[in-house]
């Protein structure tokens, strides 16, 4: 066998391997990415409220082992010492506890208001309105020692610009349910 034919043969083999490798890349790139990013994607999905689950007005939805129902959303107008054009908004929920292991299921509980543009407001500490004794916030309810079948009354207070109050709707996210979250429709919807 001459050197020339050897070269030619190895050239053939090389071209074959080049083609094979190009095809393999199609498989290997996603595989390598998936292998490396798997844990991070899991963390990302477990930490963000990404996919809304719509809840019609007056309906309750099973979420984090309990049944959630929006009972009221109203503005508290006429308060002094607030930034101009801002309105405190109260969101009231009634939650029938199913699985009482709230410390696990309700971890990372986050109630928010979302407007038509997708802007999100978290509960504020700038306004504190007096509430009846048996009203909890989402976080304090975790430690309320509620049992199966109990009904918890939750209230969160927000501070929202006046022009946003027309389109805001409340939403609830729990670590145990993320990336899904509850998105409540209002009476007027």
């Amino acid at each position: 066998m001459t050197a020339r034919s050897l070269d030619w043969e190895s050239g053939q083999g090389e071209r074959k391997w080049r083609r094979r490798s190009l095809w393999a890349l199609l498989l290997l790139v996603p595989l390598a990415l998936a292998g490396q990013a798997y844990d991070s994607v899991k963390t990302l999905l477990g930490g963000e409220d990404l996919f809304p689950r719509q809840v019609a007005w007056g309906q309750s939805a099973h979420f984090g082992g309990s049944d959630w129902k929006l009972t009221d959303l109203r503005g508290a107008f006429g308060m002094s010492s607030l930034p101009p054009d801002s309105v405190p908004v109260l969101a009231d929920f009634s939650v029938k506890v199913g699985d009482p292991d709230l410390q696990k299921l309700w971890l990372g509980c986050k109630v928010m208001l979302i407007d038509a543009e997708g802007r999100r407001w978290s509960p504020t500490s700038a306004v504190s309105l007096k509430a009846p004794g048996d009203v909890h916030t989402c976080v304090s309810a975790i430690f309320s020692g509620a049992r199966r079948g109990d009904t918890l009354n939750l209230r969160e207070t927000f501070l929202v610009p006046r022009q946003a109050t027309k389109t805001i709707r409340p939403a609830v996210g729990l670590a145990s349910e993320r990336p899904h979250f509850l998105f409540f429709q209002l009476e007027k919807d």
């Binding site: 930034p83 801002s86 802007r119 999100r120 407001w121 978290s122 504020t124 500490s125 700038a126 927000f158 501070l159 929202v160 610009p161 022009q163 946003a164």
Partner: peptide, 9 residues
């Protein structure tokens, strides 16, 4: 400082 959308502080 806690800030909310639409409410500069």
């Amino acid at each position: 400082v806690a800030i909310d959308p639409g409410l500069p502080k």
